[in-house]
């Protein structure tokens, strides 16, 4: 479903601020696969997301969605296929518009926008059913401005908006990081539910190792623009946090050692 070939991206190349954000990334996700991505700040996780969504164009390499090379498609065209939830709960919704209007905009994602009313009676019922699955009572507040919702409610709404048109790829960029622990847990649960309900091919970035272990059937660990660790299946199910830390230590330790060797 998603193939990334030889993708590299360097920021501020040739200046003292040069930063290799992605270093020859290759990966393949099968349809319906749910991968969680962990790694320290600056490891390239968000850059990888942005390259997939099209808000960044890599220096070299190809991004294929469903065997179609999309690397030169602008973000707005690619987002027909790619659903996205951001870390900032404010980022995924339009605050001065109502819940139903926000849902209507998301509903138009994979269709051509026309000059017909965005919120019809039929769609309203549809939206109400979807909102009902969140169990947040939002189905009774279709006409409320989204700016009045709490961060958790907004993030749940963003998640719904990103998923209910069943995009080919779903990108979740630390989407629970700005929430309190109980809300984060709720959103994590909803995430698991919708992804399995629609069978979405999903990539989720998180700093929460437990979440990375609980959700998904595959796990990437990234460091310095590379995927340094990739587990899936049973091996992933049996991982615990300590294994991840050890693995991280082992790979990092090796790298430090090799740096030392270079520096002599």
């Amino acid at each position: 479903m998603l193939n990334i070939h030889d993708v590299s991206l360097t920021f501020n190349e040739g200046t003292p601020d040069e930063k290799i954000a992605l270093d020859d990334i290759n990966l393949e996700l099968q349809k319906g696969e749910f991968v969680t991505v962990i790694g320290s700040n600056g490891a390239g996780k968000s850059t990888l997301m942005n390259v997939i969504s099209g808000s960044l164009i890599p220096d070299v390499g190809d991004v294929l969605i469903d065997d179609q090379n999309v690397v030169h498609l602008p973000e707005y065209k690619r987002s027909k296929m790619v659903g996205r939830v951001f870390q900032d709960p404010m980022a995924g919704t339009a605050p001065s518009m109502t819940i139903e209007e926000n849902l209507a905009m998301a509903y138009s994602r994979d269709k051509k926008r026309r000059l017909v009313p965005g919120v019809s009676k039929k769609r309203k019922d549809h939206f109400r059913d979807y909102l009902d699955t969140l169990n947040l009572g939002l189905e009774d507040r279709l006409n409320a401005k989204v700016g009045l919702l709490s961060g958790g409610e907004r993030q749940a709404l963003s998640l719904l908006m990103a998923t209910f048109t069943e995009p080919k790829i779903l990108l979740l960029d630390e989407h629970t990081a700005a929430l309190d622990p109980s809300r984060a847990e709720l959103i994590t649960k909803i995430t698991g539910d919708v992804v399995s309900k629609f069978g979405l091919t999903t990539m989720m970035v998180t700093h929460n190792m437990q979440q990375a272990l609980d959700l998904g059937d595959r796990l990437f660990m990234m460091d310095k623009g590379q995927i340094i660790f990739d587990v899936k299946g049973e091996e992933k199910q049996n991982l615990i946090i300590k294994d991840l830390l050890d693995e991280f230590q082992r790979i990092r330790g090796e790298q430090i050692a090799s740096d030392k060797a270079i520096l002599g």
Binding site: S53, S55, E75, Y76, K77, S79, K80, V82, G83, R84, F86, M90, A91, G92, T93, A94, P95, S96, M97, M105, A106, S108, R109, D110, R113, M161, A162
Partner: peptide, 11 residues
């Protein structure tokens, strides 16, 4: 209102 959001919804 929120350009980033509507661009991510293919507008």
């Amino acid at each position: 209102d929120n350009q980033k959001m509507i661009r991510s919804l293919s507008a």
